[in-house]
């Protein structure tokens, strides 16, 4: 479980950073999306990985915290997902505007001189 999680975060981050450094706006957006997935997984991992443990306490009975998983990172991830989704959408609008104004999808608005 830990190894799969670590590999997933690593691969997503690696591809995300690589795409982020590419010159096309579309690659930039995909790179940022991949990075945000990696970060979301990372936040989840910071709450310690548990399998089969509920995050919500049962009502009434005496509570043993060890039997539950940490609910806070899950709440944080939800917020982070919403925010990164919104900024990606905004990014797409700017990307289209830039494409319309400069007639190129290069991030600097002009092609490199060969």
């Amino acid at each position: 479980m830990e190894i799969i999680m670590a590999l997933a975060i690593g691969v997503l981050t690696g591809s995300g950073v690589w795409l982020l450094l590419r010159p096309r706006t579309f690659q930039l957006v995909i790179g940022l999306a991949l990075l945000s997935y990696a970060v979301n997984l990372f936040i989840l991992a910071m709450g310690r990985l548990r399998v089969g443990a509920p995050p919500i306490l049962t009502k009434g009975a005496a509570v043993d915290p060890a039997a539950y998983t940490d609910p806070l990172p899950q709440a944080l991830v939800l917020t982070a997902i919403v925010i990164s989704f919104a900024t990606t959408a905004l990014m797409l609008v700017v990307l289209l505007a830039s494409r319309g104004l400069t007639n190129t999808d290069h991030v600097d608005g002009e092609e490199d001189q060969p």
Binding site: V39, T87, V107, G109
Partner: peptide
């Protein structure tokens, strides 16, 4: 503005991560 804004947004989204 749009091309400066594109850089600004990209940098700040990455920083937020």
């Amino acid at each position: 503005r749009v091309s400066a804004g594109l850089h600004y947004i990209a940098i700040n989204v990455a920083t937020s991560l």
